[in-house]
Design a protein around this nucleic acid. Structure first.
Lengths: 337, 337
DNA sequence: TTGAAAGCGCTAACAG
DNA sequence: CTGTTAGCGCTTTCAA
């Protein structure tokens, strides 16, 4: 039971394949209503569906767009993908998804495979900070690319980007915490080497350093919480008990900190203030509510996809657009003194 | 700057396209080492990559697999997709993702589009309970399908499935709560009409009904928490104050309940017990820890994908496999009296 | 071990 | 308004 081809339809409807094709594509030189009807009926009867491969081969369009993300297990990512998927589908295209699992080699492999599938565009949340040879060749082939969430260094020309305005978000966070009367800051982050967003956030923390009595950065590499707790104890033991707040670089970090504090029995906000960049669904319910800077995740995906679609239709020639979206401060219990 | 074709390679290497094709596919009738080397070099130089469309047209294989999910915004779903994606990629295939947003019409549209892309298999978490005409035609075409998380009624033969053993999970939950001394149960669920998993869970609750002093079911349809709170108050006002526990049908429900309880100032576990099916990352940190039945989400995706791959290679003829995975009880503060 | 040639299913000139 | 024809880039007999 092979699927019917355009030729089968043509034969059954007593017309040429060309006419069927015209019908399918709603082409200019309109068909006689009678012919069209006949074709329509046959298509219906046979359950004919055009073969995307053959069409692609001819038209050089696949109807496929790819999204390669750094880590699907970070809730931020599926939220962004939601915006991407919706937009891509509205445009009549289909979305291929690749999860690099924070491994640049895996990322390369995925990109290569997806390009081989002849995707018409690539949305990328890179898990490395520089342009890999594979990505370079993608760019060279003029395949539209839009970066999500993270920038890339060493591209010949800056790539299209949609991301959080990290500098502004951290400014907001610092303002809020200082405004609440905190005088010491402990910024907790995952290693910052490979993700530009983390770098930008950390840079902003450093920039705001002088505003604090003390501001330190804690980078966590494993799940163990002991050294973080030790760090906290150390900062809290200042002679003049300056109030201390923890700021988390993202929701994954926040989860780690929440776990650490819970295990150590540290009270929030009594003993310590807590705030995070990124506002996961649970933030409002832990410790009576954790103050957060929410990201417009779905919107970010939407805009990324739109930017890609624009490039796909207008060509890669358009000058690159760097969109920076603002975060939204949600003040909650965890930073109220 | 068009991409080089097999003909370009053939010309540059002074061989026939057929030989290049042989080289590419590592075919039996081995090439002379010298020829192979020459071809290899040219491919390298030209940066040649085979055209998937042309290959598909000829081989009738696309290298594409699709996953259509009910709702990407439920954290359970991306977790399952993670397992799916990994497995599919390991098999050298690419994954197309569609998000039906709980809309059966959208689901149909997605399936149709993906089938038009000639995917070789479909993983489906249906957002309806019965086989739509579109899906029926997919099955009729012998395209391998595996259901994730939810079953479908009215299929001619039962479809392959990987899902939680809902009956067992709810048995476990009931046992645990009764063991903790609770005597009244309030089961909170989203509307159960369209998702078989919800139906199964609700059915299990009903089955366990006699074990309770009172067991009621609360279906929430909107975000407003007032009627839930009223219900709770009503159940708590029994003459002989039988201890009450809430059981949530999944993590989305749990989030709703947590919000409602927080807003109403109900204390957990002092005033009421709380438990949920599905163990989201935040469960351990809200109300000092919410007791949950964890689902093997990633594993579920992995097994679903494997089941699909099996069907794809051995043909749809294989007898359908219904895999039911067990949940894992995580006892926490919220149900300790 | 290699090449020639046919064709997968479709579209897009070009005629008519 | 409609049909004929020539490929899109690849694989795969069949011959050499």
């Amino acid at each position: 039971m092979k699927r019917p081809t355009i030729a089968d339809v043509a034969r059954a409807a007593q017309v040429s394949p060309a006419s069927v094709s015209r019908f399918l594509n709603g082409v200019e030189g309109n068909l006689a209503p009678a012919t069209a009807d006949r074709i329509a009926r046959v298509i219906q009867d046979l359950g004919y569906r055009p073969n995307a491969w053959a069409r692609s081969l001819k038209t050089q369009r696949s109807g496929l767009v790819a999204a390669v993300v750094a880590d699907l297990s970070n809730a931020y990512v599926p939220a962004v993908l939601e915006g991407v998927e919706t937009t891509i589908n509205k445009a009549g295209l289909s979305l291929l998804v690749g999860n690099a699992r924070n491994d640049p080699r895996q990322e390369d492999r995925l990109i290569e495979r997806l390009i081989d599938q002849r995707v018409e565009g690539l949305l990328l949340q890179p898990c490395s900070i520089h342009v890999s040879p594979v990505l370079a060749s993608v760019l060279e082939q003029q395949i539209p690319v839009v970066l999500l969430d993270r920038i890339l260094e060493g591209a010949e020309s800056p790539l299209n980007l949609v991301a959080l305005d990290n500098a502004a978000a951290l400014q907001q966070a610092n303002d809020h915490l200082l405004g609440q009367g905190y005088r010491q800051l402990l910024y907790v982050t995952e290693p910052t080497r490979e993700a530009s967003s983390r770098r930008e956030r950390e840079a902003a923390v450093i920039e705001n350093r002088k505003r604090w009595y003390a501001a330190e950065i804690f980078t966590y590499r494993d799940k163990r919480s002991t050294s973080l707790v030790r760090k906290i104890m150390q900062m809290r033991s200042t002679a003049i008990e300056e109030p201390l707040a923890i700021l988390c670089s993202n929701s994954k970090t926040a989860l780690f900190v929440v776990r650490s504090l819970s295990e150590a029995g540290v009270q929030v906000p009594q003993d310590i203030g807590l705030m995070t960049i990124d506002d996961p669904e649970w933030a409002a319910y832990v410790f009576g509510g954790i103050t957060a800077i929410g990201q417009p995740t779905v919107e970010l995906g939407r805009q990324g996809a739109q930017s890609l679609l624009a490039q796909m239709s207008r060509g890669t020639e358009v000058r690159p657009r760097q969109v920076r979206l603002g975060g939204i401060l949600k003040a909650r219990q965890s930073t109220s003194r």
